[in-house]
Amino acid sequence: MDMTLRRSALRLGGRAVFTVVAALAAITVGAAGLPAPEVIAVLTGGGDATARTIVLELRLPRVVLALVAGGGLAVAGAVFQALLRNPLAEPYVLGVAGGAAVGAVAAITLGLAAVPGLVPAAALAGAGGAIVLVVRIAARAGRVLDTRILLLAGVVVGAFFNAVILLLLTLADVESFRSAVFWMMGSLAPANWRAVALLALYVVPALVVLVALARPLNLLAIGDETALFLGARVHRVKLVAYFVASLLVAAAVSVCGVIGFIGLIVPHAVRLAWGSDHRLLLPASLLGGGAFLLLADTAARTMAAPAELPVGVITALLGVPLFVLLLRRSPGL
């Protein structure tokens, strides 16, 4: 165990170093084409006003947001996969994103978007509504938090929200429509320090709770009843994991919109490489998800510079080949 522990620590340490290096690299590239020495000058307290604005107000918060949001989504994805015992589960499968989108799109189409902070707040409220609704439907259907019923409730609620979104979009004026579509595409462009701080304020404690649930989540992978017989308080574990992970998704979505693929692919990549022990899987997904979204967003803001690409496109374009590569290198799993 000590060896396993040391190996896990080494692996996580390696990931952390990679993530930090990637973050530093990401700060030095961008559409404005600042030379690296100037970026370094800014980071060490120098540089001219424009360079300072670009690096400190535009790039840095965005890089940090990518790390926090990407990490949060990947962890939530891993938790949903364990909770639903389904490798296809991803953070949005239980309708959280749909709820958030209904909230945001409603706020936008009702013309409330001009109130600062209202769209994220409405998204959070919508996501919260979805979270509660799904659990209540699942609970009403009989056995509380039965995995299949939970999944079914989530999918049904998600489909309903999609219909509501389409309805709202049909009734929206062009400007709201465009805003709503861009919102749903997901982007890290709105990053600022306040958004980063708010998100981190939630993500950090959420992670602590989820990592604390790592062992019971391991047990869930072999079945609810077996986990119960092994001494896990299954119902409570599922309830806490569901709420905390859903809120994690809600927080990320309310800030960045719906960015797909990270929550599906990162946990799988970690599983393929290092196995399914959640004590390693969750922190590794955090680092991997953060680094992956950072990479994708850096590509999104530089590849077509000075225009920006939707980051969700990059996460998919980058993620699929990476995943196929991983699959080919890990036969038998």
Binding site: Q81, R215, A221, E225, D277
Partner: peptide
């Protein structure tokens, strides 16, 4: 128990070690 379906691949050692959960906690 009668039936058990494992959702994700784990090693036999990890699988057996789960039996220690009630003694170790989280």
């Amino acid at each position: 128990a009668q039936a058990e379906e494992i959702a994700f691949p784990i090693t036999v050692r990890e699988f057996v070690a789960m039996g220690r959960y009630p003694h170790l906690g989280a």
